[in-house]
């Protein structure tokens, strides 16, 4: 397995420590006057999302985590299991709700997501930045209220609740930013 020396340390590298995969989210170089160069690093656990701090001295190394990303198509949901298929190998992967996390709100059949694999097991899935979903139900628009900042909750076809402007109607398609969960615009079919 490839590794990283301290001189390769930077934000964004994925490493394995104590048998777990971590993402380096901070790396600060410190050096006392005539002393040993140190790297104060912060890591996020790629599965549990917990954050830990570790310090290394110049010359130390870390193992690279066998983490890679694939494009996977969402097929269907069965109870709390979400089934995806690797677009290249056609291999199927099942993810639990805890692994899918917030992404469940945006998953529509045949949507292509990026999936993170650790030692070839799925550990997370990210939907496209923008998705278009149908509004399954929302209260009718309040007539006469033309203020643009009036909002209301709307239930999407996926079951997720999104805050939308007052003028959005049941049955319309809307574009959503999956990174923030925010409404962007109405989409004409």
């Amino acid at each position: 397995m490839a590794g990283y020396n301290t001189s390769d340390f930077r934000k964004g590298i994925k490493v394995e420590m104590d048998g777990d995969p971590y993402l380096m989210i901070e790396c600060n170089f410190v050096k006392p006057g005539k002393g040993q160069a140190l790297y104060k690093c912060r890591f996020r656990h790629l599965i549990r999302n917990t954050v830990i701090d570790r310090t290394f001295k110049s010359g130390d190394s870390l193992e690279a985590a066998d983490v890679h990303e694939i494009q996977a198509q969402y097929l269907y949901r069965q109870g709390d299991m979400f089934v995806f298929m690797d677009n290249e190998s056609y291999e199927q992967y099942e993810l639990g709700l805890d692994q899918v996390d917030e992404a469940w709100k945006y998953l529509k059949e045949s949507m292509v997501c990026s999936m993170l694999l650790y030692n070839n097991n799925p550990i997370g899935v990210t939907p496209p930045n923008h998705v278009v979903l149908r509004v399954e139900y929302c209260e009718p628009a309040v007539r006469g209220n033309t203020a643009t900042n009036v909002t209301k909750p709307a239930k999407m076809e996926t079951g997720a609740e999104i805050i939308v402007p007052n003028f959005v109607e049941t049955g319309e398609m809307i574009r959503i930013d999956t990174r923030t969960g925010e409404y962007i615009e109405r989409v004409k079919e």
Binding site: S7, N28, F29, V30, S58
Partner: peptide
């Protein structure tokens, strides 16, 4: 060499 950081 190698000294690159907030203070280096």
């Amino acid at each position: 060499q190698e000294e690159l950081g907030p203070l280096h």
